[in-house]
């Protein structure tokens, strides 16, 4: 949960809109309670049966907009992934990929890796989410579990700087090899230059007055 003041992106005296007094509280999804509905209970039960350390490994389970997210601790990620793939009643034989999300305001959990799993056998989808601190951005690589995650992990490393331990060749994939920084982090500037047209100047998108 975080708080945001005002309506425009300007703070201090720059805001002449009169909306500076607005206060908005942003809610993030909390942990969900059983029953989750649909096949989600079955998935959670089956994983719990197959993986004895379930309560220790799963931080929380969120069911939101008819999608199931398991928040996994990174120490257990590899084992959980293997169980999800191999247990007959789960059979998530495909991982559609992993991508990062950067939450700079979450202390000690700045970088999130989000995995989208698909079960062809049962026609189900679930999501795994793992949070790591910016100061120690290490995660186990899942290339051994799902080979196709190889490039996705490289992209997440490239864009967010999450290091996947055990990856067969964790190098940049989209940016040049000698690039500095990880472009999709929130503290990485978008860049751009002001554009002049018929005497008027438009600032780059990141510097325009914005409505949050």
């Amino acid at each position: 949960m975080s708080q945001e003041n005002g309506s425009f992106g300007v703070s201090g005296t720059g805001d002449t809109s009169g909306y500076g007094g607005l206060v908005r509280i942003k809610h993030s999804a909390g942990s969900s309670e059983r029953p989750f509905g649909g096949y989600f209970d079955e998935v959670a039960d089956d994983l719990e049966r197959a993986f004895p350390e379930f309560n220790d490994a799963i931080e929380k389970i969120v069911v939101d907009r008819n999608e199931l997210t398991l928040y996994v601790k990174r120490e257990h990620l590899f084992e959980v992934a293997k169980k999800l793939r191999d247990t007959e009643s789960l059979r998530f034989e495909m991982c559609m990929g992993v991508d990062g999300v950067h939450y700079p305001e979450e202390d000690g959990r700045e970088l999130h890796a989000v995995y989208a799993l698909l079960s062809l056998t049962h026609n189900r989808r679930i999501r795994l989410e793992v949070a790591v601190p910016d100061s120690d951005p290490h995660l186990p690589s899942l290339v051994e579990v799902w080979g196709g995650i190889n490039w996705h992990e490289r992209e997440t490393f490239d864009m967010f700087g999450i290091i996947f331990d055990g990856h067969p060749g964790l190098t940049r994939i989209l940016m040049p090899d000698d690039w500095q920084g990880h472009p999709q982090r929130k503290d990485y500037p978008l860049g751009g230059i002001p554009v002049e047209y018929k005497g008027a100047t438009t600032p780059p998108p990141s510097e325009r007055r914005s409505y949050r």
Binding site: H27, M96, D99, V101, A116, W151, R212
Partner: peptide, 22 residues
């Protein structure tokens, strides 16, 4: 991913070309 604002917080495309080229 949305944080409740007027802009996306994160947009990620799982592109079939990207994945299949592997």
């Amino acid at each position: 991913v949305s944080d409740g604002g007027t802009r996306p917080y994160r947009v990620h495309f799982r592109e079939p070309s990207f994945n299949n080229l592997q």
